[in-house]
Amino acid sequence: MRIQVSAAGKWTLDTSQQVWHGEDSDTDNVMQRALFAGQQMLAIKENEGVGGFGLRYLGFQATGFLTMESAKQAAPDFARRVLIRMAEMVS
């Protein structure tokens, strides 16, 4: 089997990885996004009442981070764990 990166994949994989971006007007750090392995991850402020911050990636989530920065610091490990879990789901 020969595996190649598609045109769309090339675009997302050639874009800067693990560089966080948010809205310039977002002074409350509500949401930031970055690409991990060419796929978007979100670091978001949780709903009112839940508290803290969370990560969203490929249909998985991690919650309970006290700050946006701590969520972003945990993001590489979270991405690795998600990708490993997904690989384990394939038989």
Rank of each mutant, 00 (worst) to 15 (best):
F36E: 10
P76E: 10
R85S: 06
V50Q: 13
G54I: 08
W20Y: 08
A62G: 02
R2V: 13
M68R: 03
M41V: 07
F36Q: 08
Q17A: 08
A8S: 13
R85L: 04
Q39W: 05
E48S: 14
A71F: 03
W20V: 08
R80N: 11
L35H: 06
E48D: 15
G38L: 09
F36W: 08
D14V: 02
A34P: 05
Q73F: 04
E23H: 13
E69A: 15
A87P: 00
M89T: 15
L55E: 07
A37Y: 15
Q73N: 11
P76K: 05
K72S: 00
L42Q: 12
M1T: 11
V50P: 00
A71Y: 01
Q39A: 09
Y57K: 04
A37I: 01
A7M: 06
Q4Y: 09
M41R: 03
E23V: 01
I84R: 07
A62N: 03
Q39R: 11
A8H: 06
L83V: 04
G54Y: 03
Q61N: 04
G51S: 08
S16H: 02
S6L: 04
I84M: 02
L13V: 01
E23N: 12
F36C: 08
G52V: 07
V82D: 08
K10A: 12
E69H: 10
M89R: 15
E46Y: 05
R81M: 07
E48V: 14
M86G: 02
P76C: 07
A74T: 03
V90D: 10
D14P: 01
M31T: 15
A71D: 04
Q39G: 00
A43D: 08
V5A: 14
K45Y: 05
I44A: 13
F78C: 04
F60A: 01
V30N: 12
R81D: 14
N47M: 09
S25E: 14
R2E: 13
I84G: 01
A71C: 06
T67C: 02
L55Y: 03
